[in-house]
Design a binder for these strands. Structure first.
Lengths: 206, 206
DNA sequence: TATTATACTGTATATATATTCAGTATTTAT
DNA sequence: ATAAATACTGAATATATATACAGTATAATA
C-alpha cells in the first residue's frame, strides 16, 4: 500500500462518510459537491489515484461502483446473518424458508465453533442445563457428536434438543435436563433417527 | 413492519448478498440477472413493495440508491468490543482495567437494549432463571430498574446478580433463582446499596 | 363481486453517471 | 532538466440506470 496524500485521504474519507450516511457509494458529482470541486474530473482523477494505490476498487462502467478495500473492521465486517429456526415438528427440512422466523446479524467467530443457525427453544425440558423457553441455541450442523453433548436430534418427525448418550451401537438415549421429563430411548433399528447438529452456544434476549 | 412475501425476501437477500460481494447495491438489471427475472420492472415493483413495507429505502433518481433499513450492516450495526467483567467482590470500580478478563466483539444492537459490558457469572444462585456458572450476562448500566428485573447490585463491597423486589422505600429484597439460596434483604438506611445495572441478555459459549 | 396486492414480460425514454479529451499549474522524483 | 505525479477547471458524450407505460395472470380481500 503506497503513501496517501492529504487530498486523497479527504476523498477516501468522503466515500466512507457518504457510505455510512446513505448506504451506497457516491458518484463523482457527489464527491465534488461534498468537497467543493467544480469538475467531476477532479473526483475521477483522485479515484483513479486511490485505485492505483490499492485503497479502493472501481467497477468499470458501473455507477457508484466504488468499494473501499481492506475495510474488515468497518463496513464489511465478519458479521453474517444467521437464521432463527423454530423447533419444528413435522419433518420439513430444517432450513426451509417457511421455518425461518427472522435473522440475527452476528460475528462468525462469536462462539467457540462456527455454527449454522439459531434454534428457538420450546418447552423447559433442558432447564437444568440453563436452557429456557425462547432461548436461542447456536446450532452447528454436524454428525460429529460425543456423549454428553447437547444435540439437536430428529426421531421420526419430532425434533428435540437433549443430552446425547449412546448406550450401544443400536441404542441411543436422549436425556433431558429436567426431572419432570423422561429419558428418550431410541432403537436405531426400528426408528428413524438423525442427529441434526449440536449446540455450541446460547443467546438469550430479554 | 408489515409481512414480507417469499419473493420479496429473495429480493431483499439478493440486495444484501450483492452488497456483501461488491460493496455497493445492485441495479434493477443486476437483481434480474441474479434472480432470473426478464424485465427490470419485476425488480422495480418488488423494490417498491419492500420500500412500502419499510424494509428498504430508495433514493429517488439515484442509481443503485437502495439501502436496507434496520439491518444496516453498514452504518449503525458496527461491531464493538465489549469488556467481560468477573463478578468482583472488593468495591473496585466495575469497569476498572484490572477487572476486564477479555473482550468480545459484538454488534451494538445485538440485544433488545444497548448494553455496556458482559458480566461473567460465578455460582448458581440464578440457575432457575437459566443463568449458569460462567454465563456472560449483558449488563446495561442504568438505575431505571423495575421489580422483577434481573439486576446487578452492590451491597457494601459485594457484587451480586439477583431479581429485584423493592418492598418499601427503605427495604429492597434481592431474590435468587435457586432454592438453596436465601433472599437478601437490604436496609437502605444502614447499608451501602447501589444498582450497577440490569441484565438485558445472556450469552453462553460452550 | 369488485378491488387490491402480488408477480411477472416487454418496450421505451429521460436522465444520471462514468469517462474521455483539452487545458493550466504546482510539486516531486530521476 | 525532464518526466511523472498531483491538483484542479470545463466541456462533451456514450451508456448505464431508474422509471413510466402497456399488458397478462393469479391469489387475497372486502
Amino acid at each position: 500500500m503506497k503513501e496517501i496524500t492529504s487530498q486523497q485521504q479527504r476523498v477516501l474519507d468522503c466515500i466512507q462518510i457518504y457510505l455510512n450516511k446513505t448506504g451506497f457509494p457516491p458518484t463523482r458529482a457527489d464527491i465534488c459537491r461534498e468537497l467543493g470541486f467544480k469538475s467531476p474530473n477532479s473526483a475521477e482523477t483522485h479515484l483513479r489515484a486511490l485505485e492505483k494505490k490499492g485503497f479502493i476498487s472501481i467497477e468499470s462502467g458501473a455507477s457508484r461502483g466504488i468499494s473501499i478495500i481492506g475495510n474488515s473492521d468497518l463496513s464489511s465486517n465478519m458479521d453474517n446473518n444467521y437464521p432463527v429456526i423454530g423447533l419444528v415438528a413435522a419433518g420439513s427440512p430444517t432450513l426451509a424458508e417457511e421455518n425461518i422466523e427472522n435473522k440475527i446479524s452476528c460475528p462468525d467467530d462469536f462462539f467457540s465453533s462456527s455454527f449454522d443457525y439459531f434454534l428457538k427453544v420450546k418447552g423447559l425440558s433442558m432447564k437444568d442445563a440453563g436452557i429456557m423457553e425462547d432461548d436461542l441455541v447456536a446450532v452447528k450442523k454436524t454428525h460429529d457428536v460425543k456423549n454428553g453433548d447437547i444435540v439437536i436430534a430428529r426421531i421420526d418427525d419430532e425434533v428435540t434438543i437433549k443430552f446425547l448418550n449412546r448406550k450401544s451401537p443400536k441404542i441411543v438415549e436422549l436425556e433431558p435436563a429436567n426431572d419432570d421429563f423422561q429419558n428418550i430411548i431410541v432403537d436405531l433399528e426400528h426408528e428413524d433417527f438423525t442427529i441434526e447438529g449440536k449446540s455450541v452456544g446460547l443467546l438469550r434476549r430479554n
